[in-house]
C-alpha cells in the first residue's frame, strides 16, 4: 500500500470543509477541468512551477520546494501536520478533510491516510468530484467518516462543456454509494448563470429525490477568490467576471431544497 502521495497544499482552520475545525489536505491531480475551479494548480498530476503564485506556506514538507506546486510526501509527514491540530479537532468536533484535485485519483495513498486517521480516532471527510472508477470508492469507504460529494450540472452537454467530462459516472457512483451505507453530503457549487439556475437546481432536486435518499445539502456560494490564481499561473479564466450572489438569492435557492425536505447548510 503506497505510503506516499502528491499533495500541493495544507490548509489549517479549514471551516468550510465539514464539521468543526479541520485541516484540509489537498491532493494533486484532477480529471475534471471546471471553468470556475478555485485551484487551477491542482489539475496536473505532476509538480509544476509556482510561477507567480504566492510564496510557499511555511510548512516543513514544502521547505525544499520554494518554486514548485506539488510535492511527493510520506503518510508519516502528512500525519505529523494533521496531528498538530488534534486539540482543535477535539474541541470543535472537527478533523481532517482530503480534498483536491480529486483525492480518489490517489486512492491507495488516501486509503493509507484514512486508515491511520481511523486508528487515531481522527474524523475524516473526503471531498470528491465523484469522477473516478467505483473501485476507488470501494477502497476507502470503510475508512471514511463522511463524503463531501460535488454535483455541478444535471444537463450532460453543459457538464461536458463546463467541466470537460460527462456527468454519467458521477451520478452512477452517487447512486451506488447509497447501497454502501455511507454518510454523504451533496455539495453544489453555485456558479452564477452556470450551475445556480433554477432549471439546474430543480433538476438536481428531482434527481436526488427520485434516484437517491441523500438529504444533506451544502450550497457553496460563489466567490472570486480563484480568479487571481489564473493570472498568477498565466492561465485563462474562461468564466470571466461573475457577480456574487446576494444573500437573498442564496436564501431563495436554499428554500428550493428545503421545500423538498432537504437539510441545507449553511
Amino acid at each position: 500500500m503506497p505510503n506516499s502521495g502528491l499533495i500541493y497544499d495544507i490548509k489549517k482552520y479549514a471551516i468550510h470543509d465539514g464539521p468543526g475545525i479541520r485541516t484540509t489536505i489537498f491532493l494533486k491531480g484532477c480529471p475534471l477541468d471546471c471553468w470556475w475551479c478555485h485551484n487551477p494548480e491542482s489539475r496536473s498530476r505532476e509538480p509544476q512551477s509556482r510561477k507567480n503564485l504566492r510564496p510557499q506556506k511555511s510548512i516543513a514538507m514544502f521547505a525544499n520546494i520554494p518554486q514548485l506546486v506539488g510535492v511527493r510526501v510520506s503518510t508519516a509527514a502528512v500525519m505529523e501536520e494533521i496531528r498538530k491540530d488534534v486539540l482543535f479537532y477535539d474541541q470543535s468536533g472537527g478533523g481532517v478533510t482530503f480534498s483536491g484535485g480529486e483525492p480518489l485519483l490517489q486512492a491507495d495513498f488516501l486509503k493509507s491516510m484514512l486508515k491511520i486517521c481511523r486508528h487515531e480516532n481522527i474524523h475524516t471527510a473526503v471531498d470528491t468530484s465523484g469522477y473516478v472508477d467505483f473501485s476507488a470508492f470501494e477502497k476507502v469507504l470503510g475508512f471514511t467518516d463522511v463524503f463531501l460529494y460535488d454535483i455541478k450540472l444535471m444537463d450532460d452537454a453543459l457538464h461536458r462543456k463546463f467541466t470537460g467530462v460527462s456527468n454519467r459516472l458521477i451520478l452512477e457512483n452517487l447512486i451506488k454509494l447509497q447501497e454502501k451505507n455511507v454518510t454523504l453530503r451533496v455539495r453544489i457549487p453555485l456558479i452564477p448563470a452556470i450551475t445556480d439556475t433554477e432549471l439546474n437546481l430543480k433538476a438536481i432536486i428531482s434527481f436526488l429525490k427520485n434516484e437517491t435518499q441523500y438529504k444533506e445539502i451544502d450550497l457553496l456560494p460563489f466567490n472570486q477568490m480563484g480568479e487571481s490564481k489564473y493570472e498568477r499561473l498565466d492561465m485563462e479564466y474562461r468564466t470571466g467576471p461573475l457577480k456574487m450572489q446576494s444573500t437573498e438569492e442564496i436564501e431563495e435557492m436554499k428554500a428550493l431544497f428545503q421545500k423538498e425536505g432537504f437539510r441545507v447548510s449553511p
Binding site: I15, G20, I21, L87, Q91, S92, P266
Partner: peptide, 21 residues
C-alpha cells in the same frame, strides 16, 4: 469568518483551545 452561527462556534472552539493551552 464570523458571519454565520457556525463561524462563531468554530471561533469559540479556537479560543477555548488556546485557553486550554
Amino acid at each position: 469568518v464570523l458571519e454565520s452561527e457556525e463561524g462563531i462556534d468554530k471561533a469559540a472552539s479556537l479560543i477555548r483551545s488556546y485557553f486550554r493551552m
